[in-house]
Write a protein that binds this DNA or RNA. Structure first.
Lengths: 248, 248
DNA sequence: ACTGTGCTTTGATCCTCCTCAAAGATTTGC
DNA sequence: GCAAATCTTTGAGGAGGATCAAAGCACAGT
């Protein structure tokens, strides 16, 4: 069926796409919302900051789930690989978001792999610490419930799309979502602000890079998007949204 | 709507000691694991028991998320309907499991519909109560994290299957999972112990009832399953598992 | 400026699986 | 017990998208 070639990791610098606003990022996360400044400070002391270049791994599928991460800057890609080597992109993760939910749940292993796709900074917090914080601050545990529930809902939506929509609509929805969460306004339209290849879009929508390429080419000739090597700019979000919601 | 005759042999009698039975089932859930007997008793007093016949709705997509449910007996089907009326089955929910996770997360609305598919008994707990219990008992909030995380993982798995596997493998995996979680050992094999139509399987695997019918017919002629009107019996689980894990 | 590597495009062909259609089987309601 | 409703089966045909193949293009490093 859909055969996906293995990626060969190769490091590249994608430039500095992000501002360097680095305040107390922890306090701005959904997970730690409402936590007292003292507790946040304490948390910060036990947290470890890591800098990542594109292609740097954060954790691997199957690793012991010892540490989870808050993204302070940049973007991570979360993937799962099947037994026969096919890859699926679960999600991209941006500033203030959590990577490594399994750690919050106290699971043994990371079910997925997280990799930087841009120069990034993440803040690592150990399982022991977060479990203790949740036990001492129920509001954090309740925040965690909300965070994971939101992911669960997202996943339901994607499942629904994959079950009921044709490839073009799925790609449209996916591109619009990425533009929403990682879009940067430019003269030409909304640019997805991290490198995104045809292969990546294929792994998010359950299709092949060839089909993604054909669809983007068609859109390009209609003036809906402007895309190139690992780059997608949405020129007419509204028209693309119409296409995403059309029957089929 | 049409009703289905009650199944014999699987029913537990609650009768006038059902208060105690409730408490037992609550204590056996992953959500309330570790909660003290007094707290469980308190919880049970504020809980409401509902009996359901097949096709009875528990809550609807879009309803305010006021109450969630623990299934004491029977089985619920959780579905989502798209704008254009297509339905997807998110999950089946059996004894000790939770329906209505949105309530735990404090969301405004139920994102999905839950319906009984067999004679069932559920225990309803209000948002106010559970939120208060989680706030007072962090271990319950942490249990909730684990419960939702487990659902999230399930969803990732289905997404992966839908993205990478052909129809036959997806149906095989789905049937095996259902046999696992709702299987009843019989002389002929493992029977999925609730009514399950071709249409249902199609809505779980992102295909059509026609294709499901053809696949089951093929399996039947190979002796892998034995199926009929809303009934599926797995005769050779091992061979079906091989098929589910084969390439393609 | 040149070269190698990876990314993208496009054509041609094939095949799963969907759609349309209709009949058969099982259950329920009256 | 009969009719109506619901569920299942099967065939024929077609479409969407995968696969195979090859060339074109952009970028990083030298």
């Amino acid at each position: 069926m859909r055969r996906v070639a293995a990626r060969t990791g190769r490091r590249k610098v994608f430039g500095d796409m992000y501002g360097t606003a680095d305040q107390n990022i922890l306090g701005r996360t959904d997970l730690f919302r409402g936590l007292s400044p003292e507790s946040l400070r304490e948390l910060r002391r036990s947290a470890v900051r890591r800098r990542l270049a594109p292609y740097d791994p954060v954790f691997h599928q199957g690793d012991p789930a010892e540490t989870f991460y808050i993204v302070a800057e940049g973007r991570l890609r979360v993937t799962q690989t099947t037994a026969d080597g096919q890859q699926v992109i679960i999600r991209y993760i941006g500033p203030t978001e959590v990577a490594g939910l399994a750690v919050l749940a106290g699971d043994e292993l990371h079910p997925s792999t997280a990799t930087a796709v841009a120069d990034s900074e993440v803040i690592g917090i150990s399982r022991a610490i977060i479990r203790e914080v949740m036990a001492r601050h129920p509001e954090v545990a309740m925040n965690a419930v909300s965070v994971i529930a939101a992911r669960y809902r997202e996943m339901q939506q994607r499942l629904r799309e994959l079950s009921t929509q044709n490839v073009e609509r799925r790609i449209a929805h996916t591109v619009l979502r990425l533009a929403q969460e990682a879009g940067r306004r430019t003269a030409r339209g909304i640019e997805i602000a991290f490198p995104l290849s045809r292969q990546d879009l294929a792994e998010m929508t359950g299709t092949t890079l060839h089909t993604v390429s054909r669809v983007l080419s068609a859109w390009e000739s209609r003036g809906l998007v402007d895309s190139g090597r690992r780059r997608v700019v949405v020129r007419r979000p509204h028209e693309l949204a119409l296409l995403a919601d059309a029957a089929g």
